[in-house]
Amino acid sequence: MTWDDFVLAFFSWQIVSEAWPILWDGLQRTILMSIMVVPLGFIGGTILALLSTVHNPWIRWPAAVWTDVFRALPPLVLLIFLYAGVPFTGLEISAWGAVAIGFFLNTGSYYGEILRAGIESVPRGQQEAARSTGLTRWQTMQYIVLPQAFRNVLPDLISNTLEVVKLTSIASVVALPELLFQARQAQSVTYNATPIVAAAVIYFILLWPMVRVLSRLENKALASRR
């Protein structure tokens, strides 16, 4: 294989320009999906984290088991179970529906675990001071604990958000035409690897700034922890 053949197979401008409409279509769906699942998971996670602070063990323990189970199940397994398994009961779930439910369960558990750690990182004296001025338990959570908790685990929250955006690529497996799915389509039509390379480049351009920011935050966090 010559160099020109190689370039033609992986980095063909002509293929890129031909496949661009379909790639653009997929990219939009990837972004839309991210905008949908990140807040969904965040809300689920906040609820789980708040439940884990409740004193009643009948609430706290199920929340902990829930969190661990959905952190132990690979998200792709969950997604396929919802998309390919559940319809056998006669309940049809669209690919979007399966993605929404699957990501809510999986991502919510991850955000939940991060936020729980954040809440625990706020010193007990903060709550005592707030309660001693007459703030209720919920006001204390809202004004004193949660703002500090979010700030303390910000790097982990960003890191998880990056993982969630990357994870949307598994929706291609249940035929949701996002970026990777469209790239695979284009590749099988053109018999050329360029569309997948193009998809990879798009993901990289999209997510590299986030990786850079994270890398800085993480180094700082580890350095300050010793």
Partner: peptide, 18 residues
């Protein structure tokens, strides 16, 4: 919470909201 309004408390470790 109402009763605590009438009882101010100052802690050893300040516990100011950072």
């Amino acid at each position: 919470n109402k009763a605590r309004q009438r009882i101010g408390m100052v802690f050893q470790s300040f516990n100011l909201y950072p």
